[in-house]
Simulated scan of single mutants.
Amino acid sequence: MAVETKTSRGFTGWHMLGTMIAFFGTIIIANFTMAYFAAHSWSGLVVENSYVASQEFNEKAEAGKQQAALGWQVNAALDNGDFVYTITDKMGAPVRVNGGTVEFKHPVGDVHDTRAVLEVRGEGILGTSIDLADGSWIMEINADAGLNEPYRRISRVLVRNGKIH
């Protein structure tokens, strides 16, 4: 009696087709996934019209130079939701302020950007209650200090454990 053994047929064309479909299918799915998230996440738009923004740059730069020449000193403090901003002149005397705004922006994206109105809390002192998550923020202050333009200060701050560092 003869025993019939089945021999393996090896790597066939069907195996190659399956390997190619799996390989290129994975690449195509990854590309479509990345394209979807790119199209449905932050737009990357910083200004509506870059031409107009470029024309305003020189004016903003000149206003910044004039404000820097004032020699005013500023201090920002955050203590568990209580934000205080002080402005003093170059002699250390408080600068009279009539209010202002503060805006905290994330360096990338605008999902958690926070804006608040600053109220006068004393001579040269502005403040507000604000809830900020820990992380890196770009802080923009616009204070009404009786100048032609609001006194504007932009700085990068780190919030950790409810305090600015």
Score class of each variant (00 low, 15 high):
Met91Leu: 15
Asn161Ala: 13
Ser155Ile: 06
Leu70Thr: 00
Val111Lys: 11
Val117Glu: 03
Asn161Gly: 08
Leu17Ile: 15
Asp144Ala: 14
Leu17Tyr: 08
Asn49Gln: 11
Gly109Ser: 09
Gly10Ala: 09
Ala35His: 02
Gly13Ser: 09
Ala69Ile: 11
Trp137Gly: 00
Val102Tyr: 02
Ser129Lys: 11
Glu56Tyr: 06
Leu78Ser: 00
Glu59Ser: 12
Met34Ile: 03
Thr88His: 02
Ser50Ile: 14
Ala133Gly: 06
Ile141Asn: 03
Pro150His: 03
Met20Lys: 05
Asn148Gly: 15
His15Glu: 11
Ile141Lys: 01
Glu48Asp: 14
Val74Met: 08
Gly10Met: 01
Arg156Cys: 01
Asp110Ile: 05
Ser136Arg: 13
Ile21Tyr: 03
Leu78His: 01
Gln73Ser: 08
Trp42Asn: 04
Arg96Lys: 09
Val111Ile: 14
Ala53Asn: 06
Gly122Lys: 03
Asn98Leu: 04
Gly13His: 06
Gly71Pro: 02
Ala145His: 01
Phe23Met: 07
Asp79Cys: 03
Ala69Met: 12
Gly64Lys: 13
Asn142Gln: 13
Ala63Gly: 08
Ala39Met: 12
Ala38Arg: 05
Gly92Cys: 06
Arg121His: 07
Val157Tyr: 06
Ile21Val: 15
Arg96Gln: 12
Gly18Glu: 13
Phe23Val: 08
Ile164Met: 04
Gly44Leu: 14
Leu78Phe: 05
Ile125Trp: 00
